[in-house]
């Protein structure tokens, strides 16, 4: 009979969960609960809650991400590697699972694999500063290993393992996953290739970002009123871009990017466009909300900053985004797109 009652309890739980599914706010609460449990070290409880959630929504990236973090915290390194690896397969656009995979590999002394994972994280999101910092540490460690081999020293005891930063939460609006005091992405010391300025995303935008289209620093050639109307044009261009994205209108979406736009990584423009097409068109439903949009204009250049709440099917990502635009004829076109702090 015990068997029967357990079955009933399970059914009840399912019912309760099913009932909560219609209320999106509840998801956020679940995430917050798990996060809270993890922070206070109640890993078993956190895990139970994660497992329970995943029983009904097995693909949920945030819960799977928590699962990987908990596995790592409880010493199940190989399970954690499995969890994050599957996340990178299902959500290749997310840099965080790659980052954590790298942390796990580095913990095992597999620095080549750590390096490959971090390079993927950065390819996915060129301005992901945690991954940049971790990669810097991994490069330094690999270099130290090579130097020890070159000089025939036994480096195993002399050089400490780098402490790489693990991301604890997938969608981290307050960038808590970043290291304390982390500066915006340090630019790699040697540009990867002259053709890929996107690989040095940490440089501050060329255009100094005024708090908004502030008349306090008017461009000498444009009176405040003109700058103001330019800012409106820029805002309209950005909103049109977001609308085209949500509507999966690929012609309008890709048309929002100027000729000078440099795709992330070492991609060619056409392979980037193909990738975007595949990612966007394959989604059933996309919603995009822009918040705290601020625009600064300097002559024919502009910078738009905002928080982007992106939801596509099961995925929900909130991130900060910066678009650099250049005026071409009558249109403002995107020449640089970066995510993160």
């Amino acid at each position: 009979m015990k068997h029967g009652s357990a079955h009933i309890t399970h059914l009840l739980r399912l019912a309760i969960l099913a009932g909560s599914l219609s209320l999106t706010a509840v998801h956020a609460d679940d995430y917050a609960d798990v996060n809270q449990l993890m922070r206070t070290g109640k890993l078993a409880e956190a895990q139970a809650k994660v497992d329970q959630y995943l029983a009904t929504k097995p693909r949920d990236p945030q819960m799977r991400f928590f699962k990987g973090v908990i596995q790592r915290e409880t010493g199940k390194t190989n399970d954690a590697i499995g969890t994050f690896t599957r996340l990178t397969e299902d959500y290749p656009e997310l840099p965080e699972p790659y980052n954590n995979l790298a942390v796990l590999y580095a913990g095992q002394g597999q620095y080549d694999k750590a390096r490959a994972a971090l390079e993927m994280a950065i390819r996915t999101n060129p301005s992901y500063s945690t991954a940049h910092e971790n990669l810097g540490d991994v490069y330094a460690k690999l270099a130290s290993q090579a130097y020890n081999k070159a000089l025939q020293l036994d480096g195993s005891s002399t050089t400490a393992q780098p402490k790489l930063a693990l991301i604890r939460e997938l969608f981290d609006p307050n960038a808590k996953g970043q290291r304390p005091g982390a500066q915006p992405t340090p630019a790699p010391a040697a540009p990867a290739a002259p053709a890929a300025p996107a690989a040095t995303p940490g440089k501050p935008p060329v255009v100094a970002a005024a708090p908004s289209a502030a008349p306090a620093s008017p461009s000498p050639t444009a009176p405040p009123a003109a700058a103001d109307s330019a800012a409106k044009d820029v805002e309209a261009a950005v909103r049109a871009w977001a609308k085209a994205w949500a509507a999966k209108d690929m012609t309008a979406y890709l048309g929002a990017y100027g000729k000078e736009f440099t795709p992330p990584g070492k991609q060619s423009r056409s392979s980037w466009e193909n990738e975007r097409r595949q990612r966007i068109v394959s989604k059933n439903n996309i919603s995009l909300r822009l918040e705290n949009l601020s625009v600064s204009v300097n002559g024919n250049k502009a910078v738009a900053k905002f928080r982007q709440d992106y939801k596509a099917d099961a995925l929900s990502v909130s991130s900060r985004k910066t678009l650099d635009l250049v005026k071409s004829g009558e249109r403002w076109l995107i020449v640089r797109e970066s995510t993160g702090t």
Binding site: G136, Y139, A140, A143, A146, Y147, L151, P188, A189, A190
Partner: peptide
């Protein structure tokens, strides 16, 4: 190995 080390280092500093 020395040259490899330098090229890795050049990515970090």
């Amino acid at each position: 190995q020395l040259v490899y080390g330098d090229l890795l280092t050049s990515r970090a500093r």
